[in-house]
Design a protein around this nucleic acid. Structure first.
Length: 852
RNA sequence: GCCCGGAUGGCGGAAUGGUAGACGCAGCGGUCUCAAACACCGCCGACGCAAGUCAUGCGGGUUCGAGUCCCGCUCCGGGCACCA
């Protein structure tokens, strides 16, 4: 007696697919192409449920499209540079490259058994010279095109470890290892001119019809286009050279409500004062003890320091405002200086309250009186308000109108000019770290900054480095660092900064179209395969990764590495929800958090504990992350039940765009169902041949309904609903009294429809029923529309919106006849109790509502 | 703090403004078995004997009809430019 044995058959089918070359992407001019891509993983060493979910989704799309006749490209690679490799080297010794390569081998070994339809011949890893060397070539091209430049920018500096910290490594303003208060320090760094593309990147969002609306909205807000007024205050009592203070405001209509001016601690005026005034120096130093992240700055307590300098109001020479240095003003936005209107900005309100500054209202709600404010009054700009201290436009107008008339008014009087501003800043790519793509330039005393010659690429990372000291080992590697200038040949120094890992992931999708080429891309391949038809990844990448990739596509087009049609590289985007899990935490002697893997934690009545009984603090579910150790190992599921069970389960349990909390409970149920389907197929195969059965027609209809529904739901990324329909079809076959021929046909369609999700089981069934070839290569079934229509429909009857009865009528019965039947229905008559019908609503094929 | 989401039975979830709870999990009852497991059949939002009433995070509103649309909240999650 044979039975469902995934451990035995899954490997067999994977081999069969390999031998058939079923997943090799080929440029086939006879077929339409389809490029499906999942965001490639960081090689942490173990796959987790988030990976299984992400790659199964992509695989369902890839397999469905292949069955539908497309020439499919479905590649996989490794986002292999980054901090964890260096951290591992520091913590456990070893080398980042060895650690990373071992992790890639390990993870690939875990992904293979999933049976994904990936073209592994196209595998890439960003940490390998054949990849990052091409990235260096593009960097040089971008340098030539003026898309790259250097400028000073601030970093988080750990004064104890003498090293630059990532924002993630700054916890409550302190270095994660040293615990020292972090300082902001300025370094000269490399930048991509993404802000030159602000308008373009914003406008093009409208064309991304198959992107989630929320992602487009997040990107639009991130780019942050605003229209405002830039003007200069005349200063009084300011040092020489600071006779004017340029400020930018998006609310020039509130100019008559100004009560102070404020500048960033990094503003040139603040820097000047810092050198001459010890109090300012102390205050500014205090401000710099906050990390560089916007979050840290925005959530820090709002503080200001009165410089004693005054500015004159542009409309009233006699009206002077104090100038504060304030810790919440960002130097990167606008001019790094503002005027505060506390009546209509909550942050300014709190600031004014704290420092006893006046809060004159500029406008009130239409119909409201001028009364003291308990909080800032900040209506929507589209709302009409009554201006008490307006100076342009009518008394009652919207905020938008107020802004526009104020800009016109000011421009006409020579007070500043209307400017369009963007929040988007240039992309700083310099990292003071080893494990990244070296920036291919050399610093020469005579020639300045010189690009490496392309024939010398790749500039390879040296292997002989150690991580026993903090900081970047490239900085202290004389033979690698000290090289002749590519231009004059005199002794010079290599750039020791490496690139942000976001650079690596900003073009890998293009590299997959010609992964082994000796140029970054090959035009013919890019032209055939681009764009990515369906991109799938986590919502956490909604802004940065996707925006940088969009910029890179434009830069690659300008440098001749991508065709014009790839300017928006991702035609459709699906953002899957994250797999979340509870976090288990204890604290060390210094009260710092220590995290624990779920497999090391046991649930107890009191909560949770380590295996030695130490109680564990349970933090509510959050995104699975290595640093929090709240990760689950899918390999156990695969070992126990097979890959198809893991795949079926991750697709069935939640809508794919929603977060899913991992629970072990459903896995066994998934296995039971797959086993049931296998047994069902086995039973059908052993049925005796015979004539037509009684249920043939019903089963055929159920089958075609399933084809239509599964196709529709899979195409709409509603995989959980597709699985519900597949359960229904399996149940229908199981309960059917149809003939063997009809049942065999139904179960073969079931195998075809399940194939994208459970490809191995589908092959089992296909083979059992004597299907030709591999089901993975069989054409997708088509639903017959004639078998989808129902002859009669059940109409609920509502009385005053509450369901009271239902009637069964022919599908196309005219509304007046439906009315008659509805009103003569026994329970309707009872409910009406002779009351007159005020209104009768008949929605054909849907509902009848009787209003009395 | 700012930007973007989400909230429906014990649980995951379903529902073009039209019968709330498809499908599945857990649970309960039954058949099979010496017994158990498996498998199969049935029940399964709450209250109520019933008729029925209540019920989609909270408070309002629009509509013949609201889980769905609008306004105001609460809580949870994602992002915030050096985590990937």
């Amino acid at each position: 007696m044979s039975r469902y044995e995934p451990a035995r058959t899954e490997e067999k089918w994977q081999k069969a697919w390999d031998e058939a070359g079923a997943f090799l992407a080929r440029r086939d001019p006879a077929k339409a192409k389809y490029y499906v891509l999942e965001m490639f993983p960081y090689p942490s060493g173990r796959i987790h449920m988030g990976h299984v979910r992400n790659y199964t989704m992509g695989d369902v799309v890839a397999r469905t499209k292949a069955a539908q006749g497309f020439s499919v490209l479905h590649p996989m690679g490794w986002d292999a540079f980054g901090m964890p490799a260096e951290n591992a080297a520091m913590e456990r010794g070893g080398h980042p490259r060895d650690w990373t390569e071992a992790n890639i081998t390990e993870m690939k070994g875990q992904m293979k058994p999933l049976g994904l339809s990936i073209d592994w011949s196209r595998e890439i890893a960003t940490c390998r010279p054949d990849y990052y060397g091409q990235q260096q070539a593009m960097f040089i091209d971008m340098l030539d095109k003026g898309l790259v430049y250097r400028k000073a920018a601030v970093v988080n500096w750990d004064p104890v470890d003498m090293t630059v910290l990532a924002n993630e490594q700054v916890i409550d303003g302190k270095g994660w290892r040293s615990g020292a208060a972090v300082e902001r320090r300025e370094l000269t760094q490399w930048f991509f001119r993404i802000s030159d593309f602000s308008e373009e990147l914003l406008d093009a969002l409208d064309g991304l019809k198959d992107w989630p609306e929320k992602v487009r909205l997040m990107q639009a807000n991130w780019i942050g286009k605003s229209r405002g007024l830039q003007f200069a205050f005349e200063t009084a009592g300011a040092p020489e050279g600071f006779e004017r203070l340029e400020v930018y405001t998006t609310r020039p209509d509130t100019l008559m409500g100004a009560s102070f001016a404020a500048i960033s601690p990094d503003h040139p005026l603040a820097r000047h004062l810092e050198r001459h005034d010890p109090e300012v120096a102390e205050f500014v130093a205090d401000c710099r003890r906050v990390g560089t992240s916007e979050e840290a700055i925005e959530t820090a307590e709002k503080k200001g320091h009165d410089t004693g300098i005054r500015v004159r109001h542009p409309f009233d020479e006699a009206w002077e405002l104090p100038v504060y240095i304030a810790n919440f003003i960002l130097m990167d936005y606008g001019t790094g200086a503002i005027f505060g209107c506390p009546a209509h900005d909550q942050r300014d309100f709190e600031f004014a309250t704290k420092y006893g500054l006046p809060i004159p209202p500029v406008f009130v709600a239409v119909g409201a009186d001028d009364a003291p404010l308990a909080e800032a009054y900040v209506p929507m700009k589209s709302e009409r308000v009554r201006y008490l201290r307006g100076f342009a436009g009518t008394e009652i107008q919207t905020g938008d109108e107020g802004v526009n008339t104020a800009i016109d008014f000011c421009e006409a009087r020579g007070v500043g000019r209307g400017v369009t501003n963007y929040r988007l800043r240039d992309w700083g790519i310099s990292r003071q770290r080893y494990w990244g793509c070296p920036i291919p330039v050399v610093h020469c005393a005579a020639c300045g900054v010189v690009a490496e010659r392309k024939e010398n690429l790749p500039v390879e990372l040296p292997y002989d480095v150690t991580f026993d000291k903090p900081g970047n080992p490239l900085d202290r590697h004389p033979t690698w660092r000290d090289v002749p200038c590519p231009k004059c040949g005199q002794p010079a120094r290599r750039e020791t900064d490496t690139m942000d890992t976001f650079v690596d992931s900003s073009w890998y999708f293009a590299r997959f179209t010609a992964p082994h080429a000796t140029t970054p891309t090959v035009m013919a391949d890019a032209d055939y395969w681009m764009n990515v038809d369906q991109y799938i990844g986590g919502i956490e990448h909604a802004i940065l990764h996707l925006l940088y990739s969009r910029f890179f596509a434009r830069a690659m087009m300008l440098t001749g590495h991508l065709p014009k049609k790839a300017i928006e590289p991702f035609d459709a985007l699906f953002t899957q929800g994250m797999v979340t899990h509870e976090i288990y935490m204890t604290r060390d002697r210094q009260d710092r958090p220590v995290y624990h893997l779920p497999e090391d934690v046991v649930r107890t009545e009191a909560g949770a504990a380590l295996k030695d009984g130490t109680p564990v603090e349970v933090i509510p579910s959050a995104k699975m992350s290595k640093s929090k150790k709240n990760v689950v190992d899918p390999m156990n599921i695969i070992a126990q039940f097979g890959a198809d069970t893991a795949r079926w389960f991750v697709m069935s349990d939640s809508p794919p765009e929603r977060d899913v909390e991992w629970t072990a409970a459903g896995a066994e149920a998934a296995y039971k169902h797959l086993n049931r389907v296998w047994v069902l197929s086995d039973r059908i195969a052993s049925l005796k041949d015979g004539g037509p059965g009684r249920g043939d027609e019903d089963l055929l209809r159920a089958t075609h309904r399933a084809i239509a529904e599964v196709t529709r739901t899979v195409e709409g990324f509603a995989f959980n609903k597709a699985i519900a329909k597949l359960y229904e079809l399996a149940n229908a076959i199981q309960k059917s009294d149809a003939s063997k021929v009809a049942q065999r046909q139904a179960v073969m369609v079931l195998a075809q429809l399940m194939q994208p999700m459970t490809p191995h089981l589908a092959e089992d069934i296909w083979a059992m029923q004597g299907g030709a070839g591999l089901v993975a290569q069989a054409p997708w079934p088509k639903a017959d529309p004639a078998l989808l229509v129902e002859d009669t429909v059940v109409l609920p009857i509502q009385i005053n919106g509450k369901r009271r009865a239902e009637i069964s009528v022919p599908r196309d019965m005219p509304a007046d006849e439906v009315e008659k039947i509805a009103l003569s229905d026994e329970s309707v008559v009872k409910f009406l109790g002779g009351q007159p019908v005020k209104k009768l609503i008949v929605v054909p094929g849907r509902i009848v509502n009787v209003v009395i």
